[in-house]
Structures are given as structure tokens and as C-alpha cells.
Nucleic acid binder design. Structure first.
Lengths: 201, 201, 201, 201
DNA sequence: GAATAACCGAGACGGTACGTCCAGTCTTGAA
DNA sequence: TTCAAGACTGGACGTACCGTCTCGGTTATTC
């Protein structure tokens, strides 16, 4: 049961893996997506290009690896006991992530690249979007179980209505996403669409 | 001071301009954004690279020119007399544009590129998003004037709530956007957020 | 009749050409054939790799160009009036060229490469060996005309017998080629094989 | 009979050695000198690269090993009792070896490589040329002892004059080496240079 | 109707990065 | 200790485009 040390088949160097991910991340933040090159990553990571090509098919996948680790750490689903509060916390966290943090820049770059290339769009959906949607739904599903979310609405639709406006602002409008914006979503849109007053019965 | 002998001559060749825009468009559809290269456009358009560089700063701007022409033609704001019906028609048109038409592919590519490069994001917003938001608002503003849209809601917020879910599906989820989805936005989300029953005064 | 200036079709840069030839030459002398790389030439010549690939198919051809210019200048056929003296002078010049001069190193490298690759061997023969053999023969042909070379021997065979031993030493043996060696060829081998005493008639 | 545990074991695997030599030989014939790579040899021989590096410093030395074995077998010095006939036989054998046989291709490749690299030239001379010259001389030395070769000529010089023309044709000219060519060397050049009529005394 | 200057096609140029191949070194586990 | 396997750093390959730069040839007015 214990992972025997030195057992991984064909002993990939974790030193190289980590250096590559970090270098790619840094380059993206410093120079933007086009400034991330395999050669640049290799040089900064102190790694040979061949090592990169051995383990990743494209810079997209490298950034995907970085991003997924960050998303897992930074975008945990809260559980406060109140659906509205879970949504508020999570939307705020997400807005901050997208607009202020390096890892959010990586995410935006990946979304951008996915618009350019069908294959990468599929990778992004399979490795991120699908699982993320399940997580996003989980807040609502807890609400359904708890009784403060209606059980007769399509939760996928609710997810799109709650998260879509945020992405619309960030990806298309370049308008600020502030607390009022989030609050309006949580306090106005959510209740009228899916909320149910925690009443008797 | 003396621009005398030989008088002001040439102007830009519209033949070249059109050929370039069409070539860029075709290449994008055939090969994706990365497959659009200045050399490729020049060759296909039968135009010299220098001619392209003379009139456009980047392939992004070339595609921007194509896209703006298409958007103006294809995404006209309807005016049926009913806000809900205007929204329904327009959202359906937009969904179809994004998911089915070549010009929609161009738009998605431009949105994608805007995520990679701040400067291009600014260009996209100034040349498209700002004006588009005004157009999108105009449906609602007519509704306010007409009395079937509440006058105490932030119309920009309503725009994000109505259009955001659509883009969320298209840009991030890869899920289908069908009539029910649009209808749910128009019939459920819109009325509860901004609709007002056309009552007496 | 006069070459109109700026007439060459598509204006190849002679600056680039010269810099490439010189860089290749220098690299060969400094680092040997394997040390001549297209990248190294490009860097040293201050030229883009693509420029090299545009005009030469391989480093072999680059060195061939250098070598042919040098050979033309350095291996002129002497004309002293005496076949034996012409041979002596030419063989000495050749021996010195091969064993002491940078251009001789280039020649040896090309001969070496020709052993590795049939296509290059053909290029070497067509661009050098064939013409050189004609030049080498010309010494003997003048001798035939003059009467101090027999007219019943195959001059190609004589060329092989006179030049072959020199190359045998240089290419295979690594033994010194001194004046005695040349003199033995001219004074012993040549007369008995092809010489004719300048007699009456 | 069981190798006691902790015993000084292994010696060089002759299976690996043979497989490497054969693979190198095959690759040279199939793909030329540049097509012989350590990786290619290792793969074809079913051997690890490390094993090759353990026993040979370069592909040159691998081919050298192959070649020396072949030369020893294929280029035996004949002993017919007549110097002229020994020369004729040996020169014919050599011509055929160089122009027709796989092992001759290896030899030409090694000679070629020796022109590119001083160190390899030295190896080639020490491991082949010096010994070969002794063998070539031995034909003449037997002739001297026997009395049909003059004893006042430098036999090294005679070797160069007899073998040089052959290599000149093969290495430089790309001209055919046929029986007449060999016969002319043996019947015209050799007697006048070093032959002595087998007379009395 | 001739002069003239911006425009055009063509494409060479110095560069950067691509993705691949191979060199030579190192490490692992089996025999 | 050797071996097969194969990951590692590193360097060069030959290609594709970038954006800049002539080069001549072609308009299309305006004197």
C-alpha cells in the first residue's frame, strides 16, 4: 500500500517538472502568452527543450498543469451553511482570482487560447470546465438538500446565470467587478431565480 | 514647403484592402488563428507584405476590420415593439452567430486574443465592446421608455446578466446553446430582474 | 556588353555572400569540418540562417565555393617552357597548398566529405576534379605539342601516376612530402613513363 | 558452479561487441557515414548506448574495428613467386575491395573522416596505414630478396607510386579503375621504376 | 502629356522560435 | 560489474514567419 520509494515507472525528474511549471508561470505573468516560448521556459528552468517535449505536447498543456494546481488550491468551494453566503464568497474569490492574481492571468490566457484552437478547447473543458461545473453545482446541490434552493430549476442553467455575468465583464467588457456587482448577483438574481425562503413546510 | 511640381497623387487601393480582409477571414476559418499569418494573407491575397504592414499594425487589426463589418451587418438590433421579443431575437441571432457562422469564429478568435494581450483587449473594447454595449442597452432603454422595463435597475448590470450566460456557455463550457436556454433567459431571468408588467401607468 | 549595375535578378547581397564564405573558411581552419555549422557561420558572418539556406544547400557547397575561388587563385598552371619544370613547380605548389595552407585544409575536408556522400562526391568531381584534370593534362598536352612528352601514352593515366602518389602520402600515410619526393616523381617516374628526350626532328 | 554471491563477475560481452560492429557496418552501407549514429547502432544492436560508450570512444573507432577485421581477411598479401604478379593480384583485389565491397565503403568513410579530424587521422595511420605499408612493402622486399626488384630504390616511394594512382582515381576522380589501369601500373610503371630483369647473377 | 510621388508586387534581409535528432552523461533495477 | 532501458542537458538541424528594407513598375493626378 505504501508507495515504494523510487517506484515510479521511468523515473521522471520532479525537479525538472516543477522548474518548468514555475518558469512558464513566471513568463506568462511577465511577458504575456506570446512571450511564453518553449525555449524561454527551457532556459529559465535550466532544462533542455527535449525534456519539455518529452512530457508536454504544447505550452498550453504546461500552463494547464500549473493552472489546475493553482485552481485546486485557490478556488476551494466554501461551505458556510448558507447557499447565498457560499455563492458570495466563491464569486468574490473568483473575481479576485481572475482580476488580481497571477494564476488568474494564466486562466484567462488558457481561456483565450481555447478560443483559437478546438483541440485545446476540448482539453480545457475536460480538464477544467467539466469538473469546475460540478464543483459550482455542488454549492447549489447542498442548497437543494438543505431546502434553500428550489428543486425545480436546472442547476446548470443557474450556474451559467450566476457565473456568466462575471466572466462577461472580465473577458469582454473590461469593466470593473466590484462587491456591488457580486452582491447584486447573489441578492437579486439568485433568489428570484432559484432561491426559496427558508420557511416552514 | 514646396510640394509643388507633380501633384498629390495616390490613395489606398481598395482592391488590396478587400483582398486582404477576405484572405484573412478565409485563413482563420480554414486554419485557425495561428494559421493566419501575414505571409499567408499576402500570398493568398496576391498582395505584398509591405502593403499589409502599410495599412495594418497586426493581424489582430485586420481581423478586427473584417469582424466589425460583419457584426454591423449581422447583429443589427431588432425593434419589434416588445422588449422581451427584441431580446429573444437578438440573443438567438447572437448565439447562432457565435456557434455557427464564420464571422462568429472570427469574433471568438478576437476575444481569445484579447485575453493574451492587454493592448489588443483595449482595441477590442474600444472598437467593439463599448459600442456593442450601447446597442445592447438600447433595447432595454427603449423598454424603459415604453414602460416594460423597470427604471430603477442598472441597465449595464442587466446586460451582463442577460448576455453573460450565453458567452459563459460558448467560451468556457462547450455546452450547447439552444432555444430553451435563450427562452429561460428571456422568460425567467429578465422579467424577475428588470421586467415590469405593462400595467396602467 | 557591360554588366549593367544592379542588374542581377533579385539582388542577392554580395556582402552576405562574402561574409558567409569567409566565416566558413575561418571556422574550418579553427575547428575542423565538424566545427563548421550553419549556425556558427551565420553568427560569425552576422547573417541570418535563412539567408544561408536560401543560397546554399549545405555547408559542403559553401566550402566548395570558397575552395574553388582559392584553387583558381593559388593553383595556377605554370608555363615555363619545360614540361618537367612545369610539373615540378605545380607539384610543389600543390604539396605546399595541401599541407601548409588554410585553403588546402578546406580541400582535404571536401575530399573527406566526398567519401561520405555520393551526391557530394559528384558535386566535387563536377565542380573541381573534372576541370582540374583538364588543367593538369594541359601541362602534358603542351609537352606533347612541344615534343618533350610522348604522344602514345594515355595522358589521364600519366596524371594519375604523377599526382596520385602525392595524394596517397597526404590522404593516407601522413608521411612528409618533401622536395626529394617531388623530384623523384619528376625526374624518375615522369621521364620513364612519358618523357621523350628533346631530340632532333 | 553458481557464481558465489558477491563475486567479481562480468566481463565484456562478446555478443554485444559483435552486434555493435555488425550494426555499425550495416548502417554505414545503408545510410552512409552520417547515418551511423550511436543511437542507431544501439537500437539496431539491441544494446544500451552506455554499453557502446563503455567500450568505444566514437563511431570512428567502432568502424575502425569492423574495418580492420575485414581488411585482414580480405586484403591478404599474395605470394605467387613473381613480384609483378603479386602486385597485379593485390592491386586488383584492392581496387575491387574499394569500389565494390561493403567493407571498402567502410574504408573510404574512414579515410574521409581522417581528413576531418587530426586525431582520427593519427588513429587511422597507427592502426591501419603503418601496418598496411609494411605489408605492401613486403611484396617488394620479397622481390628484392628474390632479385626481381632493384635494391637501390626507396621502397616507400615505390609503394606510393604504385598505390597512389589507384587511390587518386577512387578518392578524387570518380573514374573507373579497370584491369588495363592496373596492368599499366604493373607492366609499365613498376618495371621502369623498380623492376630488374631476372637475369643471371 | 509629361512629371512626379505615393502605391504596389516581389522578395532578400537579420532575427526568433519551432519541433526533431543526436551527442554524451547519469541512474535504476535485473542478472 | 555489466547490461538494457531510458531520462537528462545541450547543441545543431532545417523550416516558418516576423517586421524592415530595397527594387523596379504602375498609376493618376496636377502643372
Amino acid at each position: 500500500m505504501r508507495p515504494r520509494p523510487g517506484r515510479a515507472p521511468h523515473r521522471r525528474s520532479s525537479r525538472a517538472r516543477d522548474a518548468v511549471l514555475e518558469a512558464a508561470d513566471d513568463l506568462l505573468v511577465e511577458r504575456g502568452y506570446a512571450g511564453v516560448t518553449i525555449e524561454g521556459i527551457a532556459e529559465r528552468a535550466g532544462v533542455a527543450k527535449q525534456t519539455i517535449y518529452r512530457w508536454w505536447p504544447s505550452k498550453f498543456e504546461i500552463l494547464m498543469d500549473t493552472f489546475l494546481e493553482d485552481a485546486e488550491n485557490e478556488l476551494k468551494i466554501p461551505d458556510t451553511g448558507s447557499t447565498a453566503e457560499d455563492l458570495r464568497k466563491h464569486l468574490r474569490r473568483l473575481a479576485r482570482f481572475l482580476t488580481r492574481e497571477p494564476a488568474g492571468q494564466v486562466m484567462l490566457a488558457l481561456i483565450g487560447q481555447a478560443q483559437h484552437d478546438r483541440a485545446m478547447a476540448v482539453v480545457f473543458q475536460q480538464r477544467y470546465s467539466d469538473e469546475r461545473r460540478a464543483l459550482d453545482r455542488s454549492i447549489l446541490e447542498r442548497g437543494v438538500a438543505r431546502g434553500d434552493v428550489r428543486d425545480d430549476v436546472d442547476l446548470d442553467f443557474v450556474v451559467d446565470v450566476l457565473y456568466g455575468p462575471l466572466f462577461h465583464r472580465v473577458l469582454l467588457a473590461g469593466l470593473p467587478v466590484n462587491s456591488q456587482f457580486i452582491d447584486a448577483l447573489v441578492d437579486d438574481v439568485f433568489p428570484s431565480l432559484a432561491g426559496r425562503p427558508p420557511g416552514p413546510q
